[in-house]
Structure formats: C-alpha cells, structure tokens
C-alpha cells in the first residue's frame, strides 16, 4: 500500500470515529458543537498516560476514552439542563473552555504542543474504528437504541411510556464524548504530536457538517458522511484551491434538496426490498428511525 493511500485511510478511519462521536448525541436530539474539546481531553490524557507511565498506547487510548466518557457524564448534568439552540451553545462554550485549558496547561506543553512517543499504525486504528461502528450498530438494535430513538422523536411521550429521558440523553452525550476521546488518543498516537490549535470550534463544525450531510436517521449515514468528507477533497485535488468552496456548495445544495441527509430509512428499505429482505426486516436496527 502506498504511503498516500495509507495516509488517506488513516484520516478516513479517524473521521469515522469522530462521526459517531457526533452521531450519538444527535441521535438523542442534541447538537454537540464542542466535540473537539472531548477529542482533546482524550488525546491529552492518553498521550500523558503512555508518555509518563509507559502504558501500552492502545490501553491508553481506551483509558482516555473511558475517562472522557465519565467526564462527559458528569458535565452532562449542567449541560443537559439546556435545550435546543441553548444546548448547542453550551457545548460550543464548553469546547472553547476546554481548548483554552489545554492552551494554559504547562504540564502538557501549553501552546507549544505535546509530543507523543508511542505509535499506533493503520491496523490499530482500523480495528478500533470498526469496533466503534459495530458497537454503535449493535446498540442501535437493542432496547437501549429503541429508547434513544423514542427520546429523539418525542421526549414527553417517551417519558409517559416510562423511558428515563434524562438518563438516555446523558448516556448519548457521554457515549459520543467517549468515542471522541478514543479518536483523539488514536490521532495523537498516530501523528506523534498534539497541540491546542487542533481542537478548535472549526473541527467540531466540520464533523457536524459531514455527519448531517450523511444523514442521522440511520447508523450508516455518519459513515457515508465521513467517507464523503475525506474522499471528496482528494477527488477534487486537481482543483486544489477550490475544493473547500466546492464542498461548501455541496452542503448548501444538500440542505436545500435533502435536508434529512444522503442516506435515510427510505433508501435502506428500498435496498432491502431489492435483495428480497422484504418488509420483514422491520425489527432491524437499521432503517428504523422515523424522520425528524
């Protein structure tokens, strides 16, 4: 495999992990604009663990993800008191505060950045990215996933039917943050260097953009969004300087023509019918989420 292809694959897989970090809260109706902050928490924690204590980088990444998960679960208590646009703004503020915290933490280099000694290659990243996808797809099919969809579609009715709305909202927020933390750890260990500038609001915005481009009705949407976002600029490489402008036009046109994203329940059902699955797949996790 050429270095070029490998480099793109790594970025693609990392984008998949980040996509599910944004997808989880979105699936419960929360727009998280602070995902970069959680990515940073995971990146710095895992880098610190593997640098200072010589822990295996894989364990450090998972550990970083777990701590990020717990951190998000705690921070979810005040954050989830807000709703809608206020929630999006609270996560935005949280992301900014976390970024400036990294900037002022001299233990991990502050503005100068923090080198990471241990290395994780393509294979390691691939295994974890696939795991993140499979965990998401599995959880979607369980009762847990069903409750999540219910909370997204109508909080009041789910509450009436005995779903603990707050718990599912907090879990969706924290699972997303945990994935973000793992992704951050992988990023740091692959590129051997992390700095606060990596974790800006623009990072959060672009992940949110490609997840919504892919669509949040199904578990495949974010995957497609990540593939699209990573590969489109490469395809457009001939027109180097125009690629982000073209990407932007693509987003605007998609939101006009297909505000629900590229993949929806409708396409998945059509594909299943084509392969003889028929309507019998109603219990399947994929394609179950109602629109909205």
């Amino acid at each position: 495999m050429s270095g070029y292809v490998e480099g793109i694959l790594v970025i693609l897989l990392l984008n998949v992990v980040f996509a599910y970090a944004v997808y989880w809260p979105l699936a419960a109706g929360q727009l998280n604009l602070g995902v970069a902050g959680f990515v940073g928490v995971g990146a710095y924690l895992s880098a610190y663990l593997s640098n200072e204590y010589g822990i295996s980088p894989y364990l450090a990444c998972i550990g970083g993800g777990l701590v990020t998960f717990v951190f998000a679960l705690i921070i979810a208590v005040p954050v989830l008191r807000t709703k809608g646009i206020y929630l999006a703004l609270a996560t935005f503020a949280l992301g900014q505060v976390l970024q400036s915290l990294f900037l002022n933490l001299e233990v991990v280099g502050g503005a100068a950045g923090y080198p990471v000694i241990a290395y994780i290659g393509l294979t390691g990243i691939a295994v974890i990215a696939v795991a993140v996808f499979l965990v998401t797809a599995f959880l979607e099919r369980t009762r847990f996933g069903l409750n999540m969809v219910a909370v997204h579609d109508d909080e009041a009715v789910s509450d009436l039917f005995g779903v603990n709305v707050r718990r599912y909202q907090a879990l969706a927020f924290a699972i997303g943050a945990g994935f973000a933390g793992i992704g951050g750890g992988l990023y740091g260990h692959h590129f051997s260097y992390i700095e606060p500038q990596n974790y800006s609001i623009l990072f959060s915005i672009s992940v949110v953009l490609f997840v919504l481009l892919g669509g949040t009705q199904t578990v495949l949407g974010p995957l497609l969004g990540a593939v699209f976002f990573t590969l489109l600029p490469e395809v457009l490489r001939g027109s180097e300087e125009w690629r982000y402008a073209i990407f932007a036009v693509f987003i605007i046109v998609t939101m006009i023509l297909r505000p629900q994203g590229l993949v929806t329940t409708f396409e998945l059902r059509a594909v299943r019918r084509l392969f003889g699955g028929g309507g019998g797949g109603g219990g399947s996790g994929l394609g179950r989420r109602a629109h909205g």
Binding site: L31, A88, A245, F247, A248, V249, I251, I252, M255
Partner: peptide, 14 residues
Amino acid sequence: HYVPLVSSMGFLIL
C-alpha cells in the same frame, strides 16, 4: 431546527 444552521455554516465556508 439545525438544518438552516448547517447551510449557513456552508455559506461561511464558501
């Protein structure tokens, strides 16, 4: 509610 937000972000990038 986030759809117009997203397309206005698209315009910012554009």
